[in-house]
Design a protein around this nucleic acid. Sequence first.
DNA 1: GTCTATAAAGTGATAGAC
DNA 2: GTCTATCACTTTATAGAC
Lengths: 218, 218
Amino acid sequence: MCAKKKTREEQQPVISTEHKIIAAAKTVFTKKGYSATRTRDIAAEAGINLALLNYYFRSKEKLFELIMFESASRFFLSIKSILNDASTDLQTKLELLVSHYTDLLIKEPNFPIFLLSEIQANPERLINKLEAIKQLPQSVFFAQIQKELKKNKSKLQPMHFVINLMSLIIFPFVVKPMMMPMFSKDEPAYNALMLERKKQIPVWINLFLKNSDVKPKN
Amino acid sequence: MCAKKKTREEQQPVISTEHKIIAAAKTVFTKKGYSATRTRDIAAEAGINLALLNYYFRSKEKLFELIMFESASRFFLSIKSILNDASTDLQTKLELLVSHYTDLLIKEPNFPIFLLSEIQANPERLINKLEAIKQLPQSVFFAQIQKELKKNKSKLQPMHFVINLMSLIIFPFVVKPMMMPMFSKDEPAYNALMLERKKQIPVWINLFLKNSDVKPKN
DNA sequence: GTCTATAAAGTGATAGAC
DNA sequence: GTCTATCACTTTATAGAC
């Protein structure tokens, strides 16, 4: 106990065992998913023993929930302040959202498929715990989209534009493992394309909003 | 052997055990993924015994490969004729592709995440077997996008538009389990929205192609 | 706190009766 | 072809020494 206090005061060089396990679990769970992950894989990745994992976290399930909800929070809660800022216009919000998620996804490209495949495999386990997502339709952002559509006399539901925005930001990361070989790009080249999209996606979304009642050909 | 011949001639009412297992395996694998699927789950879903599954298919792995590559073929090979038809213009191809995939995904909404999460968990096992996807950049479709961009003096790579098209078609199905509660829609209402998009997505892609060099604000 | 050893349960696959 | 029973192995979790 005395020794532990000391290391806390010394700070810097020591990474606690607890944190090593969390970091390892995040890496392995996020890449392989819950079922394909063995607790032994996490222990090995953390450079510790299997028993120690159960000493710090009671079970595989508990550790999974910790990782899942910590990541989900960073992905969902971090944008609440952007979405509900009444002092910024729609254009600004679009640019902030695209930029924020592009940077986040370059760091954590595996998270979207991880979350979505866990929901698909086991909706009842997760969907209730992500209750926070239901707040989006009540946001200032959503109201601003509605207003813009009304201004442009569009009959389309605002939901389409939320889906389009998410699609254009997230899906390119989701299909990265397929697109890279398809277009013969390595990881840095692909990420450079994603950064290009930071500028383009808000432009594209604006095109949607301003021309959404145009018929295909007539 | 004689009995088997007979049932083949009678045809109609009999669904072969082999096919029952394939159908069950497809349902369970596609929803849960390879690792979370128990061979017992497949047997139960098929209404047969576990031993019978190994009698028809040598192993879980063999059955998985069958399902995966049968589904992947339907998703990738089925569009080759559309992509390489020199007699249709870009607009027609866009409409055909969107319509084709929308219908397919309404029937099999779980396939995209299944494929993508298996690739994420185990890229080396799958990516080489999907070599066919590399043919897209050599297609007539791709050349027509390039031509259209050149005509409109865009500096953006054609790849962005392929990604955008895939994103707008596929991602809404991928996030369906999250979007339905978010916007309080049930399955039929959500699918109706997807059908609306059949008309809209080609319009949106055309907006991209014709305005892709516009700067955000200046 | 950290380890080795092992219990307890799950899971893919097969043997053998019918 | 189809079943029941069971083997062989993996995997989560814990007991107990240090």
